[in-house]
Design a protein around this nucleic acid. Structure first.
Length: 765
DNA sequence: ATTGTGCTCTCTATT
DNA sequence: AGAGCACAAT
């Protein structure tokens, strides 16, 4: 295994004397080094798998690492401490919930939940929402927590900040009362647990002899302190990172942690991995040239032994729809040439851009898979269902109570809820315990609602998880509600999918070496480790302490917002944001929407640091490609319901021209026709004529050839007419005989691919 | 008092 | 596109 590594990689893998910092460029085999090192530690250094802690940022990365280790070693990786910061903190807090001052069933708020909680605070305290926008409050609280500051520790002088701190304090109290934590709280609470309980932290310090951190450049202050807490005097830290790929400053990431880490721990043990095994020369050098525009880099020079490869193909199109169609046509050509669908990725800066691309892929019948965006566990029907389940697990969860008390509608309106809230506040009880005090018709509806939840709570003690979920969907009325809704069928399917997800979770739990029901046997008693001997759920000796499958499932839903959802095994083109593409690689990458204002995003253009972060993001995007990289841009784009016109991204200009191959005319000398009709096009669907659809001089090879079918010579540019689609222009032709196909841009219906042997076409010109 | 409808406003990225 | 709000209809 080590023989296949280059000298620097193997130096990193077998590093022995203390801590180390690995500066690993894009595509330099970073994950390979991490996993190989873990295997090496276990196999060669005879370190127990339990003595290793490996931290990543995304669940995807954690899964990847586990599966690679599992492939190399015959051990149960499920029991290893490999996970995301948030996931591992969750694990620790569940185990030591008493010391962390949390109920064992504490729930995790995602962004939307957190926002709802903040809105409740603002409403209850009569804060002016226009002066204190919930989003700003959320950012304020999150960034304070990421600095490790509780309300008392925040320095505030001006009236505005003082009010913010007040809201922060109220928010904390509310969360504590209701037994919920947000993402930042998971980390902060866990850190405080370790800092305040020497017995606990010493236990873990002795246990974790090796701590490995992936994507170290993305750690924030809190995470750094968390690592410092877990690393004991005899632990070795192994941090892998690339300052050029730091793209999470917006959530507190601090590249400076790398410098600090070298000063505090690595002390000169810095290993650079600069050989890139992923991309061909043009792609790599283009990315190198781009990132060279950033200042304050630690400095790295990536090189490759692979040849130059192909230039980056750049295409400018008139509109976002044409961009999408062009990308789809090109994707089809790649697939036809034998590329696997899952080796093709379409990337964009923001999730909103995926719609148009999805539409084009869908109409072309190309299987695709979208990552991120509105994820499974974030859909409204799923959130409703989860709220019922959360209430089932804990009646104190007022957030969830308010979400579903009147959904589906059961005659409990705003007025009633105001009464209820008043009662709950007066007697300082959770909402559910105040229902008895509300009289009247709505009051009895409230009592009924609570009865419903109580029945579910009872059912949760006996029913398996998936049956409980199914039962909940039924008795809550959610199923009936979505059955009556016009567009409810997809939501119904999602609810059924939730039952399946619960079933899968049950099964995984029963196989996993790491049961959800960990119990924190007293650490200072002779049991050396609470986790190694934790009983499986339902085993006699931990029943009262064990975490119920329901609570474990709810935590799972919050922490993994659903990117692992049904990978049904079909080969599909991958659609995702640049952020979620980090760490992945593909044969062909389409980088779309390269327009100033979109990428770089307009919110970051005016700050220097913002622009540098955007440039790193661009660098990440480009270095995802192995063989072929496309960059596309649209002159006009539907954004926020309005057509916007943009220029090419400055990042395209920053790439030396020798690496680029323009398929459209070069942006600067391109004259575009017919922009006006597009902006007025009422449906906003497609440009009204083919005039804007320029294929430019050097487009794909399939276009040049002609095809002869039934005595007619088809070639690009030919004007044809179709009985149903109307008039159009032939864009590309391919295949021969019965397989001959043409892509035709119809004035009325856009681009269609037709089989020439079947379609009834009339030649016009 | 509650529910449904139509209008405005916002909208970067992730755990 | 989705959420929040005002208004009308029950």
């Amino acid at each position: 295994m080590i023989e296949q590594l280059n000298p620097y990689q193997s130096q990193a893998v077998t590093h022995e004397d203390g801590h180390a910092l690995i500066l690993a460029g894009a595509g330099s085999g970073k994950t390979r080094v991490l996993t190989t090192r873990i295997v090496w530690l276990i196999q060669q250094k005879l370190i127990s798998p339990h003595a290793i802690l490996a931290v990543t940022f995304t669940n995807k990365a954690a899964r990847e690492m586990k599966s690679r280790i599992a492939a190399m070693l015959p051990i149960n990786v499920g029991g290893m401490w490999v996970g995301t910061f948030h996931g591992l903190c969750n694990r620790l807090l569940r185990a030591h919930y008493r010391d962390a001052n949390l109920p064992q069933t504490f729930q995790i708020l995602d962004n939307t939940d957190q926002l709802a909680a903040i809105k409740r605070i603002l409403k209850a305290g009569n804060f002016d929402e226009s002066k204190f926008p919930p989003r700003d409050v959320l950012r304020f609280i999150a960034s304070r927590k990421e600095e490790g500051l509780r309300p008392d520790a925040v320095q505030a002088q001006d009236p505005y900040s003082l009010r913010m701190v007040e809201i922060y304090r109220l928010y904390e109290a509310q969360c504590q009362r209701e037994g919920v934590v947000d993402f930042a709280e998971l980390l902060l609470r866990c850190l405080e647990l370790l800092e305040r309980n020497p017995v606990i932290s010493q236990h873990y310090q002795q246990r974790f002899q090796h701590i490995l951190v992936d994507e170290f450049q993305d750690t924030n202050r809190l995470q750094y302190r968390w690592l410092q807490c877990l690393a004991g005097p005899r632990s070795f830290m192994f941090a892998v990172g690339d300052d050029d790929q730091s793209i999470y400053a917006f959530r507190g990431a601090r590249v400076g942690n790398m410098v600090d880490f070298e000063r505090d721990y690595a002390k000169g043990h810095v290993i650079r991995l600069e050989q890139n095994y992923r991309s061909y020369g043009h792609i790599l050098n283009a990315a190198n040239a781009l990132i060279a525009n950033n200042t304050e880099r630690l400095g790295k020079n990536l090189w490759t032994e692979q040849g130059e490869g192909e230039q980056i193909r750049v295409m400018e199109l008139a509109s976002d729809h044409e961009e999408a169609q062009w990308v789809v046509d090109e994707v089809r050509a790649l697939i036809r040439d034998g590329m696997s669908r899952s080796d093709i990725a379409i990337l964009y800066r923001s999730n909103a851009q995926s719609r148009v691309l999805e539409h084009a892929l869908f109409t072309s019948g190309i299987p695709y898979r979208v990552y991120g965006g509105l994820r499974f566990f974030e859909r409204q029907e799923i959130k409703h269902a989860l709220a019922y389940l959360r209430l089932t697990a804990s009646l104190d969860d007022d957030n969830s109570f308010l979400r579903v008390v009147n959904f589906p509608a059961r005659g409990i309106g705003a007025r009633t809820l105001e009464n209820l809230t008043d009662q709950a506040r007066t007697y300082s009880t959770p909402l559910a315990q105040a229902v008895a005090r509300v009289a009247g018709k709505a009051g009895s509806s409230l009592v009924q609602f609570c009865g419903l939840i109580q029945r579910l709570t009872e059912a949760s003690r006996t029913l398996p998880l998936s049956e409980l979920v199914d039962e909940m969907i039924e008795v809550s009325g959610l199923r009936a509600y979505y059955q009556t809704q016009r567009d409810g069928s997809e939501r119904l399917e999602n609810l059924e999918e939730l039952v399946t997800a619960a079933k899968v979770f049950e099964i995984e739990q029963s196989f996993s070496g790491l049961p959800a029901g960990l119990t924190p046997r007293q650490i200072n008693q002779n049991s050396p480790d609470p986790f190694e001997q934790a009983p499986a759920i339902g085993q006699a000796d931990g029943v009262d302490e064990a975490l119920s499958p329901l609570v474990a499932f709810l935590a799972h839903a919050s922490l993994e917002s659903g990117d692992a959802q049904a990978d049904d095994g079909t080969q599909a083109v991958q659609l995702m944001t640049v952020h979620s593409a980090k760490g992945l690689e593909f044969d062909a990458v389409f980088l779309t929407g390269l327009e100033d204002g979109l990428f770089p995003h307009e919110n970051s253009i005016h700050e220097r640091d913002g622009l540098q972060e955007e440039r790193r993001l661009m660098y990440v995007a480009m270095t995802r490609a192995r063989e072929r990289l496309y960059m596309t841009l649209a002159q006009s784009r539907m954004l926020h319901g309005q057509v916007r016109y943009s220029r090419a991204s400055r990042f395209v200009e920053e790439v030396p021209p020798e690496h680029l191959k323009w398929l459209s005319a070069r942006a600067a000398d391109n004259v575009w026709l017919d922009l006006a009709p597009m902006s007025t096009a009422t449906s906003g669907r497609r440009s009204s004529s083919g005039a804007g659809f320029s294929q430019g001089p050097g487009a794909t090879t399939t276009m040049a050839r002609g095809v002869e079918v039934g005595g007619v010579q088809y070639r690009a540019g030919l004007q044809v007419s179709h009985p149903r689609f109307g008039e159009g222009t032939v864009l590309t032709v391919s295949g021969a005989g019965l397989d001959a196909q043409a892509q035709i841009n119809f004035a009325d219906v856009g681009v269609k691919t037709l089989a020439l042997g079947i379609a009834k076409l009339t030649v016009l010109s």
